[in-house]
Design a protein around this nucleic acid. Structure first.
Lengths: 143, 143
DNA sequence: CTCATATTGAGACTTAGTCTCAACTCTGGT
DNA sequence: ACCAGAGTTGAGACTAAGTCTCAATATGAG
């Protein structure tokens, strides 16, 4: 995972600096979604001195490469999720934050129908699913 | 529209204060989505002195009543949309900000399939569609 | 190794939103 | 119409997220 991130950065034609390697490692060892503040805290915990601006800049870079995606949590906060670069959607566990990816499986029909009804020319869409992952269901069933 | 907002507030068992009436009027005369800052600016323009906290408090109230919904624009900003209280999704025009509502028309099948594949227990979902509304398509076709 | 250039970080700044608390204003009861 | 008490308000401090600037630094092509 670290390797993929670094390779992608390399392919993007940017420099592989120490900070970027460190951040890639921090992202790789994260489970589920995380915020910019999480990364900053991780870096601090390991005495890596990385500026706030650098974190946001890297996240933007990775987002441009579709290696990380921005999701909006139900409470309105922004988080990032490392993911495959192909188009897909996310299932977010509201208990533990775990993320699972799902592919389109039928959304296109829905958007086409919506376009037909409304007259809109649809350019993009975003679907986020919130619920509980299998593990959290086992821990405390039928919460 | 103003009337609906005020009635809903009344039903929610809260007081109908001058500020709430003013804000309801400002929301009613807005087209498409708006941000809290927009309302604040509107209020200032009309020399209505309404505090920032009051605006956020009213938006929260209306959101609780499902009379307003929070949408996350593609650029990451938060906006609010006045809407029907039933479950539905939004089409957002990226040119002019116009909003159109669409009902589920098939999403449930998609979420059910995603749940089956992932093992998640899905509690809620959010679908946002971005594109250009019919009017903007006419103004500048095939942008 | 060198040098042009990309990158970095400190910190000021902006924007969104929350919180507190004293002052104010609805509204139901009389 | 009046009162009292509970709900509401606004100023402004505060927090968090994110952006921007610019001098100093690190990278990597040659």
């Amino acid at each position: 995972m670290v390797r993929e991130l670094l390779e992608a950065l390399d392919q993007a034609g940017v420099r592989l600096t120490g900070q970027r390697r460190d951040l890639a490692a921090l992202i790789a060892r994260r489970q589920g979604h995380f915020t910019a503040a999480d990364l900053l805290a991780d870096a601090e915990k390991r005495s890596l001195s990385i500026g706030r601006a650098t974190v946001f800049r890297l996240l933007e870079l990775l987002a441009d490469q579709n290696l990380v995606e921005r999701v909006d949590l139900p409470d309105g906060r922004h988080a990032y999720v490392p993911c495959e670069p192909s188009h897909h959607h996310h299932l977010v566990c509201v208990s533990c934050g775990a993320i699972s990816e799902v592919d389109d499986c039928g959304i296109d029909a829905v958007t086409a129908e919506a376009a037909r009804r409304s007259g809109f020319e649809i350019q993009s869409h975003r679907l986020e699913l919130f619920g509980r992952c299998p593990r959290c269901q086992n821990v405390e069933p039928r919460q």
